[in-house]
């Protein structure tokens, strides 16, 4: 707990260059724009998780491979880089770091267990998967009483019915 009584100093600004790069790459991986990604509040957490899980050298190679593919993740040919792409995307969509392919795990010489984990409670809540169909994560961001009766946004209007 913080007993600071005076106005807080603003958070040391996230190193703009590094996280901006991570955000740009994530835009290409996820299909969501920078505003939407930052709106999750998870940029720093996912950036740090990725580095922790695969290490800076592998991330560096991944970024080079991605650039060589013209920024298109579907153009990645190296299997390890592709797997890193999958993992970061999975992270954004679900808040979960997934298991890597056994071959990737071995190639990276990772000592940590190759199991999935939820990065934090907030990461689950900010998963992008729910936004792809105008939904919300179960247990959070509730839309309000009775709203489940309405057609979801972007659905055709319901034909008139007789008495329910």
């Amino acid at each position: 707990m913080d007993s600071q009584q005076t106005a807080p100093q603003p958070e040391a600004a996230d190193d703009p260059a590094e996280c901006a790069g991570f955000v740009d790459v994530s835009v290409r991986l996820t299909g969501f724009d920078a505003f939407e990604l930052r709106a999750t509040g998870m940029v720093r957490a996912y950036h740090d998780t990725t580095l922790e899980q695969v290490g800076r050298p592998a991330v560096g190679r991944f970024l080079e491979d991605l650039a060589a593919a013209g920024g298109d993740p579907e153009g990645l040919t190296d299997e390890v880089s592709r797997d890193i792409a999958r993992a970061i995307t999975h992270l954004w969509y679900l808040g979960v770091w997934p298991p890597l392919a056994r071959s990737t795990h071995a190639a990276l010489g990772r000592e940590k267990p190759n199991t999935a984990f939820v990065v934090s409670p907030e990461a689950y809540v900010e998963g992008l998967a729910w936004r792809t169909f105008h939904g919300h994560p179960p247990g959070a961001k509730p839309p309000g009483f009775g709203t489940w009766s309405d057609p979801p946004p972007a659905a055709p209007a319901r034909p008139a019915e007789g008495p329910a």
């Binding site: 600004a13 505003f35 930052r38 709106a39 509040g41 961001k141 509730p142 839309p143 309000g144």
Partner: peptide
């Protein structure tokens, strides 16, 4: 609740 979601998204963007 919609306003809350919009506000939170704004506040997390620099």
């Amino acid at each position: 609740l919609e306003l809350r979601d919009l506000a939170e998204r704004l506040c997390r963007n620099p």
